[in-house]
Amino acid sequence: MTRCFLPALLLCIGLSGVAQKRIVVYQSDFGLKDGAVSEMKGVAMGVSPDLKLFDVTHEIPAYNIWEAAYRLQQTVPYWPAGTVFVSVVDPGVGTSRKSVVLLTKTGQYIVTPDNGTLTLIAESLGIAAIREIDEAVNRRQDSKKSYTFHGRDVYSYTGARLAAGVISFEQVGPMLPKQEVVSIAYQHAVMEGTVIRGTIPVLDVQFGNVWTNIPGELFRQLGVKFGETIEVRVLHGGREVYRGDMPYSATFGAVDPGKPLAYLNSLLQLSFALNQGNFAAKHGIGSGGDWTVEVRKKS
């Protein structure tokens, strides 16, 4: 019997493949207009009707690998060790991109194409191990003639088998070097003198708020208090899209309707909004690795 000692107990449990919780959580860019998501879940139920199936979202913009990466970073930490995530945003389906299962250092599994989807979760939670899916074993029976729906035939099938304990993590396939995980380049949050630079990883799509990757603890180094003003500059591919001043506020209601404010979002990252308005739409702001933001305290 393998012997595990704290603080390596969780890692040992995860690597030995006995930490599954029979939970599978899906995300994709498929939408819900057709049967694609239902097909994936049907395959999972065929593996084991005892599985519990949930969703992150199926409204990732088509082909947007970056947003898939962000939604994993946003949600995975809140699920228990042993949870299996199946993330399918796969514009390269059927090509030479690898199909993998990543085990985070906190014990969650992510089944996905290795196309950049793992960029942020690898940084925030860390990689305990990563394995390439052996499709000779971990592929839905009689599906080899289908080249365009690996989400159903490979990823959901493998994720369900892993979550149900039909296979262990070791049986997913061969181990891959951690440093070879495909990564998307972006502006990390940094402080340079009196300016903090970061990126806009995602928009709060329901309300049009602009979320940055600048953590609250870094922003506080500017010495800005509630009610004080900051200068904000947003660039897309190096071209200025927005420049303006706004107060740093605890809540939206701290400013009049239609007025801008800076605040910390639910992930405690600096964000910009219009009270009861759509900041992103008004100023033509998007998200992704090519969007950057600069913030300084108003002198």
Rank of each mutant, 00 (worst) to 15 (best):
G42Y: 11
N213P: 08
G193F: 10
R97V: 15
L10I: 08
L9D: 04
Q27D: 13
G253V: 12
I60G: 00
K282I: 07
R3D: 14
E170P: 00
G94D: 06
L6S: 05
I121R: 01
Y242F: 15
G31F: 10
Q221S: 13
V224T: 07
A160W: 08
V89M: 09
F30A: 11
N115K: 09
K52V: 15
W291R: 06
L274I: 05
G151P: 07
S124N: 12
W79F: 15
V76T: 09
V166R: 02
G35C: 10
R131K: 13
N138V: 10
R97Q: 14
S124D: 15
A8T: 10
V154A: 03
R3A: 15
H188C: 09
K105P: 01
S143A: 11
Y63T: 15
E192Q: 14
L267P: 00
D204S: 12
N213L: 12
R233W: 03
Y109C: 08
V202I: 15
I65H: 01
Y63P: 01
F54Y: 14
P113R: 09
P61Q: 12
I65G: 01
F272D: 01
A185H: 11
G237D: 09
H236Y: 13
Y263N: 02
I130D: 00
A185W: 08
G289N: 14
S183W: 06
R140D: 00
N209E: 13
T57S: 11
T95Q: 05
V232W: 00
F169Y: 15
L125R: 02
G244T: 09
V101G: 05
E192C: 04
I60V: 15
T199A: 13
Q269M: 14
T104G: 01
T229D: 03
G237E: 12
A81Y: 05
L264I: 06
F169E: 05
V56C: 05
G227R: 04
V255F: 03
Y248D: 03
G253S: 14
K298M: 11
A36I: 11
T106Y: 00
F279V: 03
A129R: 02
T229E: 08
D204K: 11
Q187C: 10
P174D: 14
G173R: 04
V224R: 01
L15D: 01
V166T: 10
I130V: 15
D204R: 11
W291V: 09
Q73M: 15
